[in-house]
Simulated scan of single mutants.
Amino acid sequence: MKLPPADSELGKLMAMLPRQGRVEWIGLRPKREVAMDAVTQVIAQTGAGLVGDRYSGGSGERGITLIQAEHLPVIAALSGHDAVAPATLRRNLVVSGLPLVALKGRRFRIGEVVLEGTDDCDPCSRMEAALGAGGYNAMRGHGGLCARILDGGTIHLGDAVVALQD
Rank of each mutant, 00 (worst) to 15 (best):
K12W: 08
M14R: 14
A15V: 00
L17Q: 14
R19S: 14
R19W: 08
R19H: 09
Q20T: 04
R22Y: 02
W25V: 03
I26A: 03
G27S: 05
L28W: 05
V34L: 03
V34D: 12
M36D: 12
M36H: 13
Q41Y: 10
V42M: 12
I43M: 13
A44C: 10
Q45V: 08
G47P: 08
A48Q: 15
G49M: 10
G49N: 04
G49K: 00
G49I: 11
V51L: 14
V51M: 07
V51G: 00
D53N: 05
R54I: 13
S56I: 04
S56G: 12
S59Y: 11
E61I: 06
E61H: 11
E61P: 00
G63T: 02
I64H: 00
T65R: 06
L66Q: 01
L66Y: 02
I67C: 06
E70K: 14
E70I: 10
E70C: 15
H71F: 10
H71Q: 15
L72C: 05
L72F: 02
I75E: 13
I75C: 04
I75K: 00
A76K: 01
A76W: 07
V84W: 06
V84A: 11
P86K: 09
A87D: 14
A87W: 15
T88A: 15
L89H: 04
L93K: 07
V95M: 13
S96D: 11
P99Y: 02
V101H: 13
V101D: 13
V101K: 14
A102T: 07
A102G: 09
L103K: 13
L103P: 11
G105E: 08
R106N: 09
R106V: 11
F108P: 09
F108A: 01
R109D: 07
I110K: 02
I110G: 01
G111H: 03
G111P: 07
E112S: 14
V113H: 01
V113P: 00
T118Y: 05
T118K: 06
T118M: 07
D119L: 09
D120G: 07
P123E: 14
P123G: 15
C124D: 10
S125V: 12
R126Q: 15
R126P: 01
M127Y: 05
M127Q: 01
M127R: 02
